[in-house]
Design a protein around this nucleic acid. Structure first.
Lengths: 204, 204
DNA sequence: TCTAATTTCATACTTTGGGGTGAGTAGCAG
DNA sequence: CTGCTACTCACCCCAAAGTATGAAATTAGA
């Protein structure tokens, strides 16, 4: 296996440089260092890394937890929070996005490496044990006609055993609309019933 | 939910007291504080806690990783390592026993709480993850009316996304028979559609 | 800006599934 | 022998899902 490429998101250039140097000395490779939300998203889309180190506080309205939300929704990579705020609110908010790890500033090289190592390991464990959550990117990779966001959302609910009526209520649209979505979903998945669709998705 | 009872294993009484005080101030309860391997094992057997904080170095031949091995083999609770050694060997050895978390000394209250919180959360995630093998024994354990062999076979096929017609062909019986089986299957599973049944089974 | 894709909704029709009842057969345990 | 359970099948009705077509509003991208 080649080196693990890590994205660093940290608004303080000094700390960022410090982390970069620290990681470069070992098994990890730094894929990029960015200082704000927008650049982080761009990097994640463009050169998807294998993991991300996220500073929670970025000195702007969008913070590290927002980036984590993006990762959780769109990409399947582990991420670790770096923060100087270890208060209950921050932790509660951070937990919701299921971070692989959490490192509290100030930290030294050993904290970073140990935390990173354990986090990556735990994440690998989770991946092996956990039945994979649905990922639109993963699904679209095996389809000629990619699913739209809406179709994917409907697929998720469908996967949970919901009926068309329930889907209609959940998404505040008419049953007819749901039917249309479900129908085109079947076409794209090349199946002809919800149970078939579920079975196909389960096989990933 | 009652408080989470935590066992602390730490040979330094000062640090142990510090941790105890720190935990007592929040959602966690300290079940006991012990200073060596033997006492730790005794405590684990006697008043099994919900989680354990393990100092790696205990100043004797048996260390925290040994305790972790014991926990992993005999008890199913999450444990977190505390250590001042964050070298590769220690980490490698610690990883083998799948710790829920890893906290590097020196740490302060925030490190401890954040690490503990995240570790417990990750552990809960792991526990919830299951392998998708269908087992009639496992399923019947959670049902008041156990499934018959035939019903289980039909459930398996249903889980694969088959229609009633396909089931009929597969089992060389009439569609009506399948319907009857599926109907009693729903009754026993307490669901009212195949997709619901599939979702329920997937959640085990 | 203008198009292409997405999302929304409708109508109409067919097929499949869900719910309920009744009933015949086989096998096994008391 | 008798009851019990599992398995089989049939018939009914209605609800839900699937198929097809058309079309409006919205959004995103070139």
């Amino acid at each position: 296996m080649s080196e693990i490429r890590i994205l660093i998101v940290e608004d303080d250039p000094l700390i960022a440089a410090d982390i970069e140097q620290c990681l470069n000395s070992i098994d990890y490779a730094v894929s990029a260092v960015v200082y704000n939300y927008a650049d982080a998203i761009a990097e994640l889309k463009d050169r998807t890394p294998d993991a991300a180190l996220l500073d929670v506080n970025l000195g702007e309205e969008k913070d590290g937890v927002d980036i984590a939300s993006f990762i959780q929704e769109h990409i399947k990579i582990p991420f670790i929070f770096l923060t100087s705020y270890a208060d209950k609110q921050t932790i509660a908010r951070a937990k919701k996005v299921q971070p692989a790890g959490y490192i509290v500033k100030p930290f030294d090289e050993r904290d970073l490496l140990a935390g990173l190592d354990i986090a990556m390991y735990n994440y690998a464990m989770l991946q092996n044990a956990q039945q994979p959550k649905l990922s639109i990117i993963a699904i679209n990779k095996v389809l000629k006609n990619p699913l739209s966001q809406r179709e994917f959302e409907i697929l998720e609910a469908l996967y949970e055993g919901k009926t068309n009526q329930q889907l209609a209520e959940q998404f505040y649209v008419s049953v007819n609309t749901i039917k249309t979505h479900v129908y085109s979903l079947y076409t794209k998945l090349d199946v002809s019933s919800r149970t078939e669709a579920i079975a196909k998705i389960r096989r990933l």
